[in-house]
Write a protein that binds this DNA or RNA. Structure first.
Length: 498
RNA sequence: GGUGGGUUCGUAUAACGGCUAGUACUCAAGAUUUUCAUUCUUGCAAUAGGAGUUCGAUUCUCCUACCCACUACCA
């Protein structure tokens, strides 16, 4: 049986967005599941849209997610099909385009952008759609309509010609997609796509993609649904070359959380969630937030992405990468677009945070403390982490949850003070606090006196934390000590008016 | 406009053509707790509409509606 070889082939035109990461992930899972290869190829055949730093961003994003190519761009060691950047492969495509011309599957086209524009607007004015194919190519300027002399003259004198695919006139292309099943399309509705452009001596996506997939022995093409309309062209290209084609799987799109349409950067900005795996600063200085910088764990991110459009058919929701590999199959990928749900994303991170060890979380929390000017003893921090980790979604929440274990409150929440800082409460709280030496003793003391536990405790909590909610008094006192508790209480007495 | 794809609770999804259409997130209520959070329990909520095939349709077929993608010398 043929070896499973898949590729992720992004275009370095900007930061990779989470839909792209999911495509890479599914490719990776499929490759690993079948003991095959996962290749990273960079499709940079559009010199005009190249963005500096985008390729490095893609590589780093995949690495952060644990989606590691074993062949291709950024991979050290044996790379049997190098290079993997199409710009570095530019020399190899032209001969394939010319091979198609020789065999009658393609032709030279000399129409200028203006001429095509004119043809399109004329067709539109007549209420029709202009399609560059068998219906129209006979009246356009190309090597099928011009004489041999004119063609060679134009080929030499001009530098803006293209090579176009000669779409068959009347055929039904029969296709199969692993996810969508059988699809049929009439060639009369398709156009003669440009395959190669003389202007920058580069192929377009369609040619480069098919040639490279063939040369790199790709067995399965797993890509986004936006490519489905190109599938007939790709089928016909394989046929024209006489090559065995790979199997295709077109993934459903990732949609915005509300409304309709593809998930875009704007949606993230508007609704307050990242659309990109890592933070990205565009060459113009525009900043986009990333899952990593927002505090997501990479395995949580991978997990939530995996379940957007795929599920194993069981009720399991938490998967390690190895478990994903084990459970993954393209047949279980859904057909319809998946709306991204930011709430569920947070839930995943919360679950993953809980699974992290106290040691690891402490290591992540220490720098946060340092940022707040706190120099704490790691063992003490670890105990605090153990106490609060179930309350948090992100490590950054730790500070908001437990800052008062590290420093005294500077101010008090008005509403809570008005409710609990009343003279009788303060009197009882003060007595309970001073008359006892531990939180447990204090609780017994209050109980023995038959004082209202809630009022007294919240009065104390207000003094210790500045508000009436937070951790248990016993826990707070255990960490800050009785002396500090008393000091905070006296400070509150001075600062708060009853 | 044309071509293709899609449609199960608000969201992600489950259900060899066969139990009362299941689960998770969100939301609500209750229990627990000195408060908040956690935890636990319960609840709200869906097969787009219409025909057909069938003993039986979420599942198969057709029509309608709606949504999406593509429609570049971009990928």
């Amino acid at each position: 049986m043929k070896r499973t070889r898949v590729r992720f082939a992004p275009s370095p035109t900007g930061p990779l967005h989470m839909g792209g990461v999911r495509t890479a992930l599914y490719n990776y899972l499929f490759a690993k599941k079948n003991g095959g290869d996962f290749i990273l190829r960079i499709e940079d055949t559009d010199s005009h849209r190249f963005v500096p730093g985008a390729e490095q961003y893609i590589i780093e994003s995949l690495r952060w997610c644990g989606i590691i190519p074993n062949e291709g761009v950024g991979v050290e060691g044996a790379n049997p099909h190098a290079p993997y950047r199409q710009s570095e492969r530019r020399g190899i495509y032209r001969k394939y385009a010319e091979q198609l011309i020789e065999n009658g599957y393609a032709y030279y086209a000399f129409d200028t952008a203006e001429e095509l524009e004119k043809a399109r607007s004329e067709a539109e004015a007549a209420g029709q759609t202009f399609i560059y194919n068998a219906a129209t190519r006979g009246s356009l300027r190309n090597s099928l309509t011009l004489s041999q002399e004119e063609v060679s003259q134009l080929l030499n004198s001009r530098s803006d010609w293209t090579i176009r695919f000669r779409m068959p006139e009347e055929r039904t292309v029969q296709m199969d997609d692993i996810i969508r099943g059988h699809i049929e399309v009439e060639t009369s509705t398709l156009d003669d796509k440009v395959l190669w452009k003389r202007a920058d001596e580069l192929p377009t996506y369609h040619l480069a993609n098919i040639v490279d997939d063939h040369l790199m022995e790709i067995s399965h093409v797993i890509r986004g649904e936006e490519w489905l309309p190109s599938l007939p062209l790709h089928y016909l290209l394989y046929e024209a070359f006489g090559w065995e084609r790979p199997l295709f799987a077109h993934l459903p799109l990732l949609l915005k959380p509300v409304g309709n349409g593809k998930l875009s950067k704007r949606d993230g900005d508007k609704m307050g969630f990242p659309v990109f795996p890592l933070k990205w600063v565009s060459p113009e200085g525009e900043v986009s937030r990333g899952y990593r910088e927002d505090g997501y764990f990479p395995d949580a991110f991978v997990n939530l992405l995996a379940l957007l459009g795929w599920n194993p058919g069981t009720e399991q929701e938490i998967f390690s990468m190895d478990e994903l590999i084990e459970a993954f199959s393209l047949e279980k990928v859904g057909k319809s677009g998946a709306k991204f749900n930011p709430d569920k994303a947070k839930w995943f991170n919360k679950e993953y945070l809980r699974m992290r060890s106290d040691e690891e979380l402490t290591g992540l929390f220490m720098p946060v403390l340092a940022e707040h000017g706190i120099n704490a003893e790691p063992n003490r921090v670890k105990e605090i982490v153990a106490l609060i980790k179930e309350r948090a979604t992100f490590v950054s929440d730790f500070w908001d949850i437990a800052w008062y274990l590290f420093k005294a409150p500077e101010e008090y929440v008005q509403k809570d003070a008005a409710k609990f800082w009343k003279s009788e409460n303060v009197q009882m709280a003060g007595e309970a606090l001073t008359a006892t030496s531990s939180a447990q003793e204090m609780e017994e003391y209050i109980r023995a006196k038959e004082w209202p536990m809630g009022k007294v405790m919240n009065c104390i909590r207000l003094a210790l934390t500045g508000s009436s909610n937070g951790l248990g008094i016993a826990d707070i006192m255990r960490f800050i000590g009785r002396e500090e508790a008393l000091a905070r209480f006296h400070r509150a007495e001075e600062r708060l008016i009853i």
